[in-house]
């Protein structure tokens, strides 16, 4: 069964017909040629397909596209900005570069999106598994960042560089991370 849906993807309105079986990930990668979200497991177990969906980090492999009609999707490619003709990187992306927070790069767009989401969740005071005092404020310390990023696997083992990148951006004023 085919259904028409509308999405905003990286700032662009996209209207398309989808098979009701199509996942958001396959819609992006195979129909809309948005290949920044990666397919690492197609099974909710690696985080490579993470995007920001209506502002929150979200897996696209366990989402039927038809159920997200009207949503706004921002992928890692959509986090970049522009200055004149030049593409500018989001502060999180720049920090990944500065700390070599990747090797093969396949998990990287998902890590970047997840990091942006983590910083927002910290700003909203969401606790995590390692938050000692559930009723107090949450800190953006290393333990918190590691735990919160744990839904994004990196087989190259770039975790120390990724942590350094997220830590650096977490230390910036909130205006720098939105």
């Amino acid at each position: 069964m085919e259904t028409r849906i509308r999405l905003t993807v990286d700032g662009r309105q996209r209207e398309t017909s989808v098979d009701t079986r199509t996942t958001l990930l396959d819609l992006l990668r195979e129909r809309l040629d948005v290949t920044s979200p990666k397919k690492g497991c197609d099974h909710g177990q690696c985080g490579s397909c993470t995007v920001l969906l209506d502002g929150r980090r979200h897996l696209t492999c366990l989402a039927l596209a038809v159920a997200y009609d009207g949503s706004e999707v921002v992928t890692a490619a959509g986090l970049t900005g522009s200055e004149g003709d030049d593409e500018t990187l989001h502060p999180v992306q720049q920090a990944f570069l500065d700390h070599d927070g990747y090797q093969c790069g396949y998990c990287t767009p998902g890590q970047v999106c997840s990091a942006v989401g983590v910083l927002r969740e910290l700003g909203e005071g969401h606790p995590s598994h390692v938050t000692e005092d559930l009723t107090g404020p949450v800190a953006a310390d290393d333990d918190e960042l590691r735990e919160r990023m744990s839904g994004n696997l990196c087989r190259c083992g770039a975790y120390p560089g990724i942590l350094a990148a997220v830590r650096e951006v977490a230390g910036q004023p909130a205006g720098g991370i939105a």
Binding site: S36, K38, L79, F96
Partner: peptide, 21 residues
Amino acid sequence: HPRVDGPLKVAGRAAYAVEHR
């Protein structure tokens, strides 16, 4: 020397096998 393919990778613009168009 910073990784020369870094900007493409962090923006998700590096094309992996089946992403070639």
